[in-house]
Design a protein around this nucleic acid. Structure first.
Length: 420
RNA sequence: GUGGGUGUAGCUCAACUGGUUAGAGCACGAGACUGUGGCUCUCGGGGUUGCGGGUUCAAAUCCCGUCACUCACCCCA
């Protein structure tokens, strides 16, 4: 075996497709029921798009981007092209590029597609992976947050995933976050040297992330410090209250988690995460939140926005453990008894297909027995035998595989018989 | 980027302390049933034991290196 796929990529084989299709169909139905429209953006984007939005100190920007080697790259004159590592920034880019802010500022969009991050692969983490997600652009209202969270939970429920956990937090606006960061810095100053190596860096770069460090030492050191919600300003507090109330009114169970700090810099106010216990270390099925500053940061008007992203492979993993979707075979398998009849058989095969009957036949001169075995294997509903006997009478022998019943059918009424 | 685990047939796994020609189940193919699937039985094809080197009379087995896969850290969906 010499040819190999790149590390961290996956072939989705035909036998896995039914499950993917089931997921995709459910996703589209559900999103469209909530009146979200699909948007598709390029797989490659300029580096500066992500650099500015995700945050320069995040791992994704620092070491996980894929760069495309192009002539521009060689000459070093232009912004570098990258494979997209997430989709919120491209969508905001498209929103502004096509002037939605000026003409139809309220938009509800969903997306589905592959993303690329050069990470070390493990369970639930690939280098090429798929996300589905939604973005509500042009609203500051708490009900947008509620709808987005409701949609995420509803979608998972419709897929048959009920045993997941919704965590909720508010990160406040830049103002409350500034106050809190300052307080946090003061509170931690004395114990910086006791933090893990990573958190010592975070202390300077992105102090909030110390809160969700898994290291025991860091957890204990930050445990007694007042959490962010104590520092929320009046407006953020009010917004958060409305979101919680909206969820409660609709019986969407959540857990307050004041250590939930999402990795991207652009989040404000509401952040949430949905996890599932059956997944291993990478247990987040869905992550999202509000990002009221991003559109303005990209040069648009101040605009509220909220959204989420789900990891498709992770959902598939949960689904595969719960559900089996049987692939469907063709309606008819046409058995060929003699090579001299092959072209007659092909004509019949084509006629069946013309009449919207899915059909297959053998080209390899296999024994009839082998052809029946094949038909069984691919789960054909009927086997039709067109041999010399039948051809002279203008009939075929039709066997229904599930019942084993066999009868002779006029060629003329074959399609009808199969369709009934 | 760091650490652990595992590499034997298409798949899942055997092979005592190093010792004949590396086995089994499943899968695949053919037959038993010369125009009929699943079940059963019989037979058959299939291996550079990941790769390279070393130790030894002898290596799937021990040692070194390397690659791949995998899980975890980190990060995140």
């Amino acid at each position: 075996m010499r040819l190999k796929k790149p590390q961290g990529t996956e072939d989705i084989l035909p036998e896995q497709i039914p499950l993917w299709r089931y997921l995709e169909d459910t996703v589209r139905n559900t999103f469209e029921r909530y009146n979200y429209s699909e948007i598709r953006t390029p797989i490659m984007e300029f580096y500066s798009l992500f650099n500015r939005s995700i945050g320069e100190t995040t791992d994704i920007i620092e070491k996980e981007m894929y760069f495309l080697r192009t002539r521009e790259h060689e000459e070093g004159t232009k912004d570098l092209l990258t494979l997209r590592p997430e989709l919120t920034a491209p969508i905001v880019r498209a929103y502004l590029e096509h002037n939605f802010d000026k003409t139809r500022s309220f938009q509800k969009w969903y997306y589905y597609g592959p993303l690329f991050r050069h990470e070390r692969p493990q369970k639930g983490r690939l280098r090429q992976f798929h996300q589905i997600g939604v973005e509500v652009l042009g609203s500051y209202d708490a009900f947008s947050d509620v709808e987005v969270i409701d949609l995420a939970m509803t979608l998972l429920r419709l897929l048959g995933i009920n045993d997941c956990q919704l965590d909720l937090n508010s990160m406040g606006c830049p103002d409350c976050r500034k106050t809190y960061s300052k307080a946090l810095r003061e509170a931690l100053e004395g114990s910086v040297s006791k933090l893990c190596e990573n958190c010592q860096q975070r202390f300077n770069k992105n102090i909030l992330r110390i809160l969700d460090c898994k290291d025991k030492r860091c957890y204990e050191i930050s445990f007694n410090i007042a959490s962010l919600d104590r520092y929320l300003c009046q407006r953020c507090n009010e917004h958060f209250r409305k979101v919680k109330k909206g969820l409660e009114d609709n019986r969407i169970a959540y857990r307050l988690n004041n250590r939930l700090v999402r990795g991207f810099d652009y989040y404000t106010k509401t952040v949430f995460e949905i996890t599932h216990s059956g997944l291993g270390a990478q247990n987040a099925l869905c992550g999202g939140g509000r990002y009221d500053g991003l559109i303005a940061q990209f040069g648009g008007p101040p605009t509220g926005a909220v959204g989420f992203a789900m990891g498709v492979e992770r959902i598939i993993e949960v689904l595969a453990a719960k559900k089996r979707i049987e692939p469907r075979g063709p309606s008819v398998y046409l058995a060929v008894t003699d090579e001299s009849l092959k072209s007659e058989c092909y004509k019949l095969l084509r006629e069946l297909r013309e009449n919207l009957v899915s059909a297959e036949m053998d080209y390899e001169q296999k024994s009839l027995k082998a052809q029946f075995r094949n038909a069984d294997r691919i789960k054909a509903r009927f086997v039709a035998v067109l041999g010399t006997k039948e051809l002279s009478k203008g009939t075929v022998t039709l066997k229904e595989m599930a019942t084993g019943k066999e009868r002779e059918v006029e060629l003329k009424s074959l399609v009808e018989t199969i369709k009934e």
